[in-house]
Design a protein around this nucleic acid. Structure first.
Lengths: 136, 136
DNA sequence: ACCTTTAACGCAACTATGTTGCATAAATTT
DNA sequence: AAATTTATGCAACATAGTTGCGTTAAAGGT
């Protein structure tokens, strides 16, 4: 993915193409797994200000470019919203207990959950734990 | 559940029955949903020291008396380990988007997940989101 | 190309969450 | 009752995340 594509994606999401946000999106595109604030802070070169990073993440979230992924550390992690996102299907994540990375498994199909009496279910998220391809 | 029962449970888990830990367990027993550190801090009367609370939670976790539950706020939440816990079944939690409380749904049955090629699955957790009985 | 509008950045200060080390106190074990 | 072990309280620290505000830079219109 070249720089032009990245800037088109930003534009399509109503996000201004600053050096930092271009770099931030590039970092997400290149990563196979969810990134925490400190992951991002250590990769980014265009700023060292944490507020800028947090606000970049907030905007990317708001505009639907990224989403939160579960993690076993107590820190928030974020990953690109897959473009082939399918509706009305549980979102599946995989946490590797070895490397602690969270992967999005959009390929997997999970069965619909029957309604629980008394509860109104709007969304379901399946989180799998074990070992990822790199750690088996 | 009276005070004697609570102290028996502590003893059965190898936890000393101090005033604080007796109260902590009582708080968990009385709560229908997962509690965060600050929930607990505001309920507890036997201490106001956060280290004591955190260490109480650590010990309860270690001894298997409580477990972490997912939450949409970025804070850790804990709930009692249900006694009727069934093995080899996904743990199901329900997060209410209205009151932000996390409930354990041990009754629900979820289908086995087929292995993903390349990944070794050891555990699966299903998190449902929507509205709880109180918020419908 | 210039001006205006609006969003993004950088800095300082602050809050919440969580941890470590150590001395003291209380609960179990003998 | 003494010895042992675990729990508590305090201080200090570390990390995560937020708010306000003045400045800078991007986008759109003329």
């Amino acid at each position: 993915m070249d720089n032009q594509n990245i800037q088109d994606i930003l534009k399509a999401h109503g996000i201004r193409k600053t050096l930092f946000r271009t770099e931030l999106l590039d970092i997400f595109i290149k990563s196979r797994y969810g990134l925490s604030f400190s992951d991002i802070k250590s990769k980014v070169t265009q700023t060292q200000d944490k507020v800028t990073i947090y606000r970049g993440l907030d905007v990317f979230l708001e505009k639907g470019l990224i989403h939160k992924v579960p993690s076993n550390d107590r820190v928030a992690k974020y990953a690109l919203h897959s473009l082939e996102e399918v509706h009305n299907r549980a979102h599946v994540h995989f946490i590797c207990t070895e490397c602690d990375n969270t992967f999005c498994l959009n390929e997997i199909e999970i069965p619909e959950i029957k309604d629980m009496p008394g509860y109104k279910i709007q969304k379901s998220k399946l989180t799998l734990e074990g070992n990822c391809p790199d750690c088996i």
